[in-house]
């Protein structure tokens, strides 16, 4: 266990140390020493109002993503279950997902304003499609035998949706939310850079355009930490909820194949 952690950790640590050493005492205007950047980050968080920016951005992401998850999963379950709906809407949904939501940023912000609401809406709009489409795909991947079984036992439809279809599609739903999270962070940044009095995007834009390079790097770093932190959080949720899925099939690492006990034979088997 410790060995594995070390083997995964040495390279990131090495990169960090190299960055630390190579920028130490740097006089380059664009690449200030890493220590300065970290120091600036701390100062800004402690008293520079960066915490407010972080809170604003975080709240928008979580709200938009939660909304998209509720709507996307509900719609995805229905579309996935109803064959006609699935066939009819397929190309439209693919088109919607393929449309870059960043294109809507000027339209939405210029008409609806620079507040929090339009940003939540943009994040919702961008996150919806990957979640919805993955839910549809997840429903499609459920073994037909499972469906037949619950039909055979005459399980009522709402119970079937909640206890059979939703859990069956959940691994795929999580995959969708993971994709949606990265889209959400991008939309958060773009919408705040485009027009916002507050937020992490605004912070890096303001410090960048006023040539406060250390602040710009610090803000960028914080956005990275936010993105990574949220994805780790999501992964923890997934493991808590999907224990059955991840424990089911440990990937075969031994060379001997899974079919060791054979039943078919026409002689005496010992």
């Amino acid at each position: 266990m410790t060995g594995r952690i070390l083997r995964q950790l040495w390279l990131p640590v090495l990169v960090f140390v190299i960055l630390l050493v190579s920028t130490a005492g740097s006089t380059s205007f664009y690449f200030p020493p890493l220590t300065t950047v970290l120091h600036t980050l701390w100062d800004q968080l402690a008293g520079g109002g960066l915490l407010d920016d972080l809170w604003f951005s975080l709240r928008n992401i979580v709200l938009g993503l939660a909304l998209a998850t509720v709507v996307g999963v509900a719609a995805g379950l229905v579309i996935g279950e109803v064959r006609t709906l699935r066939l009819a809407l397929g190309p439209l949904l693919d088109f919607a997902r393929a449309t870059p939501t960043v294109g809507f940023v000027p339209v939405i912000i210029l008409t609806l304003g620079i507040g929090s609401g339009p940003k939540v809406f943009l994040i919702f709009l961008g996150s919806l499609w990957p979640i919805l489409l993955n839910t549809v795909a997840g429903v499609g991947q459920i073994n037909p035998a499972v469906h037949e079984t619950s039909r055979g036992y005459r399980v009522p439809w709402h119970l079937q949706l909640r206890r059979v279809v939703l859990p069956g599609a959940l691994p795929q739903v999580f995959a969708g939310v993971r994709v949606a999270l990265s889209v959400a962070v991008v939309l958060m940044v773009v919408s705040e850079i485009y027009g916002s009095p507050i937020g992490l995007g605004n912070f890096i834009l303001q410090s960048g355009s006023s040539f406060h390079v250390a602040e710009t790097w610090a803000g960028t770093l914080l956005i990275g930490v936010l993105g990574y932190g949220l994805s780790v959080l999501l992964l923890l949720c997934e493991h808590a909820l999907l224990g059955w899925y991840h424990q089911r099939a440990p990937r075969a690492s031994r060379p001997s194949p899974a079919l060791t006990i054979e039943k078919k034979s026409n002689g005496v088997v010992v």
Partner: peptide, 24 residues
Amino acid sequence: ESSRLLVEILRSFPVIALLPVFLL
């Protein structure tokens, strides 16, 4: 195994946030 964590971190980074830095 060595590159896993690094790639994970870099992948989850919203690249568009580098825009102000790249602009500079």
